[in-house]
């Protein structure tokens, strides 16, 4: 059985598996997208944001 057949039979064939797959996929994708954009944003603005300079001012908790 080829890979596409596996996909078809496990996900797309029944609505009861397809709809949860859509929901789970959207959830996972949005998290991954957020992480990727944040990573790019932080590297682009390296050293400028508060989280980059916070260590200079925050005192360690005792």
């Amino acid at each position: 059985m080829s890979l596409s057949n596996v996909f078809y039979n496990t996900i797309f064939k029944r609505n009861s598996t397809f709809v949860p797959a859509v929901f789970a996929g959207a959830f996972a994708w949005s998290i991954g997208f957020e992480i990727a954009v944040t990573k790019f944003h932080d590297s682009w603005n390296k050293g400028k944001q508060w989280k980059d300079i916070r260590d200079k001012y925050a005192t360690v908790e005792e």
Binding site: H41, W44, N45, K48, Q49, W50, D52, I53
Partner: peptide
């Protein structure tokens, strides 16, 4: 794409 320079804000 540029944020503020927060050291400058401080």
């Amino acid at each position: 794409l540029d944020t503020f320079d927060h050291a400058s804000i401080r």
